[in-house]
Design a protein around this nucleic acid. Structure first.
Length: 839
DNA sequence: AGCACGCCGACT
DNA sequence: GTCGGCGTGCTC
């Protein structure tokens, strides 16, 4: 592997001519070559963090991607300014991983770096100004104008000011000229301030000054001395009580957290005096942001089914790198994972377990923590940056050999992965949409695993078709785990026909009679209910009953969603908000009605239908805060809520014994999504949410409301017949050229002017047509949403042959085309986005 | 992406 | 007349 980058220490005598290709977090498709100064040559290597100047003044953190001796021919390389650490922050495998990702997903390696490194590890500079100490306004030969005076005054009582501060002081946008003039007049100095963003958590502690613990007599003397000062004595006694240095003098080294003294209500000023007089000393240590916790080291006992699956997995791994574990909900995958993880860790390798975002808040992590204690790292998107840096460093130092995390945890600096486990592998949230790199963490995880010569286990109750196809064709191993753990039974399904009930006048506030009866039954039995509707807000739009007018977003091509909470109309694409109109803007009629079903409305309807029930709602709007989701879950878990309404958030990881009824408000909405994956997703979503119904002792009920109960997919979902559903859908996919039979690349063209957007998309489309590769080219078509944030959107879809190097060739050509187009003035300001394997 | 340099409108 | 708008070109 080393040879990929050249052996940088080949010729030690010529180290003065060393150059480094550096990855910088900028969206420019190349690395940048800098000169390695003599004094750094010995201590530098691939993956080291360095500081370089980029452009006229910007200072950036870069990562050494390659070291070589070839001086650039067309320009003068700038020197590396400094080295940030005495070790590599990124290992060679990661650099290869980044390079692969940039190439595969058609983005720049700098963008990958940006996504990979927690921002705490990327420092950058900010321009600041300060007063020139030699400047004296009275003797200065240069006259100052009003604004310059103003700025100097503002600066007079400050150490420094940022450009933003200056703008604020002067109240104008362009301060450059003024600053320049002040520099020429030698009144100020402009400098770059580099800020290290990561700050370790520091704890203040106290202990006896050295000589006092050397022998007991000294301590006794000390107490005699201090006897007249009760407050100080109290503090010393408290210290001795917490840290028995009489018995074990070595304990003094670690001291006592300073906070303990103030928490005990003892005098802070007396403590200060003790420190001032040299009796105690204060010192600081760096502590972890994560609590220390012992693992339980318990013996995991697998059921016979689990044990069998476990053995099968191991057997499959003998000749396959990737294995799919097809295990139905509640089959106890967690225990299986734990057993596997333990085994890999015992072998001295690292393990990465990927989970979808919300699953990270649930009991699975708690269970893992119980077993692995703080040797397990958790990498969460809601973590602060400092916390992320600590996980990063934990993996780097070897302290954390096992990490559970969301999709971005594939970027952690593992150096010897033994296994990557991707749970709920079918989850769409593994795909990153925006910004680049638009990677699929499941696929990237398999690649990462391959780079480590490690194994990948994919787990799902409803595998993605891509994965299942790979398993069927023998590319992946396949193990199924069919029995529900602990004798829990599969739920009963009921199809409730919305149209029939409507005709019979049995539909009340969008609830069919069957649904209402089942809910009532559960309530009577003190059981809980989940209601699923994948749409937030009150109603997706409101409409004028007289003329059909619908309020739309000013910036996007969508109707505004009515949110009862806060009484406003909101755009779910750009965040635009406005007041709810009282009359139609087109005809003035005041007959405006809310159309369609959102979670808010369902919540309201439930309160009306079941006034005695406690109803709660879980969607993006109620879980925005860091612990919003967890709080709602706890409320529900503790039985403070009878009915929980929610979006797809409720479909995952909610394992509560008392849920016996799950209602799906509008299955058709999931099914008729204009996307080739709609069927697959419907199957997955409905199965997932249904899996929440009924546990151990009680069979659950799942009520699916639909307008077309005769559709085959329902029968397949109900009988859990994933395979026949799969076969049927795959027939379609093959006929109409959809993945996994082809590779899809989506190219989006965006511009604020409709005509320009359309013209650019056409032009690009034609050029793509000329690429000599077997392909199907569709479009360019106006986006599903024609305009978002005032940008008109066009899309082209390319379907590529999976075999050979068609993909690689096409991508390469495409990037050339885009580069050229972007340089052309006709397409100035046009944004092109390439999405490989889009969702 | 930033951030410079460079050429045109609306204010003193 | 200048200030200040932003178009366009480059970054090792």
């Amino acid at each position: 592997m080393e040879s990929l980058f050249g052996d940088q220490y080949d010729n030690k005598d010529e180290k003065s001519n060393l150059f480094a290709d550096i990855i910088l977090p900028v969206p420019i498709p190349k690395m940048f070559t800098y000169k390695i100064p003599r004094n750094l040559a010995e201590s530098i290597g691939i993956g080291f963090r360095v500081i370089v100047q980029f452009g006229k003044k910007k200072i950036l953190t870069g990562i050494i991607g390659r070291v070589h001796q070839k001086p650039p021919t067309s320009y003068d390389a700038k020197p590396i300014l400094d080295l940030l650490d005495n070790h590599a922050t990124v290992n060679p495998i990661q650099i290869r991983f980044w390079a692969w990702m940039a190439e595969y997903y058609c983005c720049h390696i700098g963008e990958v770096m940006n996504a990979a490194l927690p921002s705490g590890l990327k420092l950058s500079s900010e321009s600041k100004i300060q007063l020139n100490p030699t400047f004296d306004p009275d003797t200065s030969p240069y006259p100052l104008d009003e604004r310059e005076e103003l700025l100097l005054q503002a600066l007079a009582n400050k150490e420094e000011m940022s450009y933003e501060d200056c703008e604020a002081v002067l109240g104008i946008k362009s301060i450059h000229g003024i600053l320049k003039s002040l520099v020429i007049k030698e009144a100020i100095i402009v400098f770059e301030q580099v800020k290290e963003k990561y700050s370790p958590k520091v704890e203040s502690r106290i202990r006896f000054s050295h000589e006092h613990v050397k022998d007991k007599k000294l301590l006794e003397a000390l107490f005699n001395e201090i006897a007249g000062k009760p407050k100080q004595e109290e503090i010393l006694l408290k210290y001795l009580q917490e840290v028995p240095v009489y018995k074990k003098p070595e304990l003094n080294q670690k001291g006592l957290e300073k906070k303990v003294i103030s928490d005990a209500g003892l005098s802070a000023s007396s403590l200060k005096t003790l420190i001032k007089n040299g009796v105690l000393e204060e010192f600081k240590i760096i502590i972890s942001r994560f609590e220390e916790e012992e693992g339980s080291n318990e013996e995991i006992v697998l059921s016979s089914e689990q044990e069998e699956a476990f053995q099968q997995i191991k057997k499959e791994f003998e000749d396959k790198n990737t294995v799919l574990l097809h295990g139905i909900t509640g089959s106890g995958k967690t225990e299986l994972y734990i057993t596997l993880i333990k085994e890999v860790l015992a072998g001295g390798s690292q393990v990465l377990l990927l989970l979808p975002e919300i699953a990270l808040t649930t009991h699975m992590v708690g269970r893992l923590r119980q077993v692995f204690g703080s040797s397990m790292g958790v990498y969460h998107s809601k973590y602060s940056d400092n916390e992320r840096v600590e996980v990063w460093n934990g993996v780097l130092s070897g302290k954390l050999s096992f990490v559970v995390g969301v999709r971005s945890s594939i970027f952690l600096p593992f150096d010897s992965l033994g296994m990557v486990i991707i749970d709920e592998e079918h989850e769409p949230s593994y795909k990153q949409f925006d910004p680049a790199p638009r990677f699929q963490a499941r696929d990237a995880g398999i690649m990462l695993s391959w780079l480590h010569q490690s194994k990948t286990l994919l787990g799902s109750a409803t595998p993605s078709f891509e994965t299942f196809h790979n398993a069927k064709t023998g590319k992946y191993g396949y193990v199924s785990l069919e029995k529900r753990f602990g004798e829990a039974q599969l739920p009963d399904y009921y199809l409730a026909d919305i149209l029939v009930d409507k005709k019979k006048n049995l539909l009340k506030l969008d609830f069919t009679r069957l649904m209402r009866e089942k809910i009532q039954e559960a309530l009577n039995n003190q059981e809980q209910v989940l209601i699923f509707q994948n749409r937030r807000g009150y109603a997706p739009y409101i409409s004028c009953e007289d003329c059909g007018w619908i309020p739309e977003c000013e910036h996007c091509d969508v109707s505004l969603t009515y949110h009862q909470f806060g009484e406003e109309m909101r755009c779910h694409y750009c965040g635009f908000k406005e007041k709810v109109p009282h009359a139609c803007s087109a005809c003035g009629s005041n007959k405006l009605s809310a159309v369609g079903l959102g979670t808010e409305r369902i919540e309201e309807s439930l309160s009306l239908l079941f006034p005695e029930a406690r109803v709660a709602r879980m969607d993006l709007d109620t879980t925005r805060s860091k612990y919003g989701y967890q709080r709602l879950l706890e409320d529900f878990g503790s039985g403070n809520v009878d009915i929980l309404v929610g979006t797809q958030m409720i479909t995952k990881g909610l394992d509560f014994d008392r849920v016996t009824v799950v209602g799906i408000m509008d299955a058709d909405r999931i099914l008729y999504f204009p996307d080739f994956r709609a069927g697959e997703r419907a199957f997955q979503q409905i199965t997932q949410v249904a899996g929440r119904a009924g546990r151990r002792d009680k069979k659950g009920s799942v009520i699916i409301q639909t307008r077309k109960p005769e559709q085959a997919i329902f029968g397949q979902i109900i009988s859990g017949d994933y395979k026949s559903f799969y076969l049927q859908e795959m027939g379609e996919r093959q006929r109409f050229f959809y993945p996994p039979f082809v590779k899809i690349i989506k190219i989006t063209t965006r511009h604020k002017d409709y005509k320009t957007a359309e013209k650019s998309a056409r032009y690009l489309h034609n050029l793509m047509g000329d690429i000599q590769v077997k392909k199907i080219l569709l479009g360019p078509e106006k986006g599903l949403i024609g305009k978002i944030k005032n940008q008109y959107i066009f899309e082209s879809i390319v379907k590529l042959d999976r075999t050979g190097n068609a993909q690689a060739h096409f991508k390469q050509e495409l990037l050339h085309i885009l580069e050229e187009m972007q340089a052309h003035k006709d397409f100035r300001g046009v944004r092109f986005v390439v999405d490989v394997d889009p969702y």
